[in-house]
Each structure stands twice: as structure tokens, then as C-alpha cells.
């Protein structure tokens, strides 16, 4: 109970918000808009899983938004070039893995601080994309949207993929040696090394995984509309980091869970529609997102200080 206090309190806040909506804005629960809102969060969810892993190893990756955008445009161009969805997916995953590997190399093997490395790659990839695409949208081939299924079918598939991914990742993280190594490295890299774990390899792996997940997220985003917006990744890194932080993943590594990150994401994602339904203007979204991050980190700070005493 005490161990999952943070996850449970976020879940409780989420349930409270949902109850409020049920009382004051029952329209929120109409099936189609609700489903659309949920599927719109699936790409961010995939990024959040990656970010949570990166943060567990005591690193950060703020280039995921740029990676996401680049992968989305690449996959879109491949698709527009007449290739099927599998080829687009492979291209996106490959590009993501490559960009992740670059971050991983610089952070894990050259021991550079991840905040600065990913700051640099964030700018670099965003500008590469801008230079290359000049802000033009990519029109997708027909049959890509919703995987060629009906809208409902596509949305259910997306939900299935998202849910399965969280469950699988959470299971692997909890119950495999490799998953525990992620925690070990984030908790104390030197102790990990003395235990025969290779911290550089784990960190590198996590960054590559992050990039690959960014590629996957880009494709899961792409299938939801007939076009690719080259700016679709802007700001996503913040949303993902915010979700992980709110969900209780510690910034200094080693503590947190993927289920917590999921709860954090859902909480953040519910705030905006809740504002709309409760007649608060949507312009407040970013401010409230910032406030929620601050509240989460303040709560963590107070809790860890109380634990010390």
C-alpha cells in the first residue's frame, strides 16, 4: 500500500475528476468523442512509456518530440511513395532507433549529460525536418488511416495496441532481469557496475528503445488522420515528461512505475476536456499543465523530506 502510495493517489485524483465530470458534464462520456480523445492520447502514452524508462535510469530525453516529428514525416513520405503500412512502420522504427542510438552513444558511452545532449539533438532534428519539409503537410495514401479499417475498428485496434504495450512493458520491467537492471542503474550506477551490470549498455539500450518507441508513436499518430503535420511532435516531450513526473517517476532515477505514468497521463489528458466542459477557456491548458507538474514535484519533495526525518 505504502509502496504504491503515489500511484494510488494519482489514480484517486483521476477518479475524482471523472466523477466530477459525470456529475457536471455527462456529455463527456458519449462514446465516440470519448473514444477519439482516448486514441488521441495513445501516441503520447507510447512516448511516456519510453520517457519513464529513460527517467528510471536517471536520464532525460527532451528530443522525443523532434524524433516523433521526423519519424512521422518519414513514415508519411514512405507511405505517400506507394509503400504499405508495414514499410512505413519499419522506416519510422528504424529512424527512431537511429536517433535514439545517437543520443545513447553520447550519453552512455561518452558520459555527456543527457539534458544537454538531447537539447542539442532536439534542435538539430527539428531543424533538419524544417529544412527538409519547409512546413508542408504530407498526404497519406488511402488505406493508411485507421489501418484501412472502419474508424471504430481502427480506434479499438489503437486502444488494444496501447493497452497491450503498457501491460507488456510493465510486466517485463517488473519481472525480468533486464527490467530490474533499469532500476539498478538509475538507483546507483556504480553499485550496478560492481554487481556485474553494464550501466552504459543499459542506458544505451533505454535510449534506443526510447527512439524506437518514438517511431512507433509517430505511426500510431499517423493512422489517425489523412495527413501528416510536420509540427505534430512539438511540445510532446513536455507532455510525456509531465505525465511521468505526475505519475510518480522520480527525476533522480530508480523509483516509479509504468502504471503510475499511465495514471499521470490520463489525469493530465482529462484536465483539458474537463476545463472545456466546466466552461474554463482552453487557453489555460499549458498553464494548468505547468501547475500540475509543480504540484506533483512539490508533493514528492515534501514526502521525501518527511521520510528523511
Amino acid at each position: 500500500m505504502k509502496r504504491y502510495f503515489r500511484e494510488l493517489s494519482v489514480a484517486a485524483a483521476l477518479v475524482l475528476l471523472l466523477l466530477l465530470l459525470a456529475l457536471f458534464a455527462p456529455h463527456f462520456y458519449e462514446l465516440q468523442p470519448l473514444l477519439s480523445r482516448l486514441t488521441a492520447q495513445i501516441p503520447t502514452l507510447v512516448l511516456t512509456l519510453g520517457i519513464a524508462l529513460v527517467m528510471l535510469t536517471r536520464q532525460i530525453d527532451i528530443s522525443v518530440g523532434s524524433q516523433f516529428g521526423l519519424c512521422a514525416v518519414l513514415a508519411g513520405l514512405v507511405s505517400a511513395g506507394g509503400h504499405g503500412l508495414p514499410v512505413s512502420l519499419a522506416a519510422a522504427l528504424g529512424a527512431g532507433a537511429f536517433m535514439g542510438a545517437l543520443n545513447g552513444c553520447l550519453v552512455a558511452w561518452m558520459r555527456l549529460p543527457s539534458i544537454v545532449v538531447t537539447l542539442a539533438t532536439m534542435v538539430t532534428w527539428a531543424e533538419v525536418l524544417r529544412l527538409f519539409q519547409q512546413g508542408k503537410f504530407v498526404n497519406l495514401a488511402p488505406g493508411v488511416q485507421w489501418f484501412g479499417l472502419s474508424q471504430l475498428g481502427g480506434q479499438l485496434t489503437l486502444l488494444g495496441v496501447g493497452g497491450a504495450l503498457v501491460a507488456l512493458a510493465a510486466y517485463l520491467l517488473k519481472n525480468t532481469s533486464g527490467g530490474r537492471h533499469v532500476y539498478a542503474v538509475g538507483s546507483d550506477a556504480e553499485a550496478a557496475r560492481l554487481s556485474g551490470i553494464n550501466p552504459s549498455a543499459v542506458t544505451f539500450g533505454v535510449f534506443v528503445l526510447m527512439g524506437t518507441l518514438a517511431g512507433l508513436a509517430a505511426v500510431l499518430n499517423l493512422v489517425q488522420s489523412p495527413q501528416v503535420d510536420p509540427k505534430c511532435g512539438t511540445g510532446l516531450e513536455l507532455k510525456a515528461i509531465a505525465a511521468a513526473v505526475v505519475g510518480g517517476v522520480a527525476v533522480n532515477g530508480g523509483r516509479g512505475s509504468l502504471w503510475g505514468a499511465l495514471a499521470g497521463l490520463l489525469l493530465l489528458a482529462t484536465i483539458n476536456p474537463a476545463l472545456t466542459f466546466l466552461h474554463v477557456e482552453a487557453y489555460w491548458e499549458k498553464a494548468i499543465q505547468g501547475l500540475v507538474i509543480l504540484l506533483a514535484v512539490i508533493a514528492d519533495g515534501i514526502r521525501s523530506r518527511r521520510n528523511l526525518n
Binding site: R180, Y183, A184, G186, S187, D188, E190, A191, A192, L194, S195, A250, G253, G254, R255
Partner: peptide
């Protein structure tokens, strides 16, 4: 057995 315990504080 190291002088400074080389353990994982979070685990």
C-alpha cells in the same frame, strides 16, 4: 565488501 556500501538505495 566495500568500505562504502555499494547498494541500490531505491531497491
Amino acid at each position: 565488501i566495500y568500505q562504502q556500501p555499494a547498494l541500490f538505495p531505491d531497491l
